[in-house]
């Protein structure tokens, strides 16, 4: 297992290098000049040139790349061109809200979708099954921002149970922290609940037809044991894959939810950085996200061995 882990980590290095180079080149080739943006309306060409020099943007692209890579390997992700703040500080500030939101959403997703999928498979063809499948179609079809506005209207504005927007860190107390995560997490999880409920149902249907399930029932095991210990565990590998990649997708794709609920997370940071041509911030976030994908995929692969004893590395 340890050897496999190390091999996978080593294999990630060329992936990250190619990605770093691609991102770097794409950004330099895209239209928009940060120096012009920073200089403002009345800047003379000399002032723009002076800013470009100060930012190191007048260097050849390969020099800029090697300087950036060299700094990054030493843990220095650079400074935002626009706010002059450390990129690492900006990412750290934004990582917590996004990870908190993604974790809360994944908890909602797992708690709701897996039982729903299991019950739908168990009662295949019944009204429960039809209801779960219909609701999952709605979850797929309705855009996240629409769901967001609906839950805000109902739970925050009409009922006044939860806040409309914003994020508070755990430092402000668990109540403050959790209350502001409930609605966005519910909203963000809607599509994943639909996806994973369907996935769980499909996997369970396959497994429930297997001989060992019939054997388990024949020897008198209770239905709950059959479903959750024998069937769900065997159906778990594809479900785990979707949950794992779902988490990575949530971290990198929460921008709509973050905007609707005004959560200052990574999604908003990268959109702002792209619009402002803030190269160091964009590069760092893309690399971070890619690293997260690689890491989560590795964790998913390792988790197979835990859920399915037949898989060994």
């Amino acid at each position: 297992m340890l050897g496999y882990f190390i091999r996978r980590l080593l294999a990630a290095i060329p992936v990250m290098l190619v990605l770093a180079l691609s991102v770097f080149l794409l950004l330099r080739l895209s239209p928009g000049d940060p120096a012009v943006i920073i200089a403002g309306d009345m800047a003379s060409p000399e002032q723009v040139a002076s800013i470009r020099t100060a930012l190191g943007l007048d260097q050849p692209i390969y020099t800029q790349f090697f300087i950036w890579m060299g700094n990054m390997l030493q843990g220095d992700f650079g400074t935002s061109l626009i706010s002059q703040t450390s990129v690492m500080t900006m990412i750290t500030q934004r990582l917590e809200p996004t990870v908190s939101l993604a974790l809360a959403a994944i908890v909602f997703t797992v708690l709701i979708s897996v039982p729903l999928g299991v019950i739908a498979a168990w009662r295949q063809g019944s009204w429960v099954d039809n209801l779960v499948m219909s609701v999952s179609v709605v979850g797929f079809s309705v855009p996240v921002f629409v769901i967001g506005y609906i839950v805000i209207q109902v739970f925050a504005i009409k009922l006044g149970w939860l806040p409309v927007q914003g994020y508070r860190s755990l430092d402000n107390g668990f109540g403050e922290f959790a209350s502001r995560l409930v609605l966005p997490a519910l909203t963000l999880s809607s599509v994943y609940i639909a996806l994973i409920a369907r996935m769980t149902r499909a996997s369970m249907l396959e497994v429930l037809k297997e001989d060992y399930i019939r054997t388990a029932r024949a020897k008198g095991l209770g239905e709950r044991l059959v479903l959750f210990r024998h069937a769900l565990r065997n159906a778990g590998v594809p479900i785990l894959t979707v949950i794992g990649t779902g988490f990575a997708l949530m971290v990198s794709g929460v921008v709509v939810t973050e905007s609707v609920f005004n959560i200052p997370g990574l999604g908003r940071l990268i959109i702002d950085a792209v619009l402002a041509r803030d190269y160091p911030v964009i590069q760092a976030i893309i690399l971070l996200t890619a690293g997260l994908y690689v890491f989560i995929n590795l964790l998913i692969d390792l988790s197979y061995a835990i859920t399915d004893p037949r898989i060994r590395y």
């Binding site: 805000i152 925050a156 409309v164 927007q165 914003g166 905007s259 609707v260 005004n262």
Partner: peptide, 18 residues
């Protein structure tokens, strides 16, 4: 000073007293 990228969220926030 808070920045809210979504205008509907801003309206909801002032209506609710946030």
């Amino acid at each position: 000073w808070i920045h809210m990228p979504d205008v509907q969220t801003t309206i909801n926030a002032i209506n609710s007293g946030d």
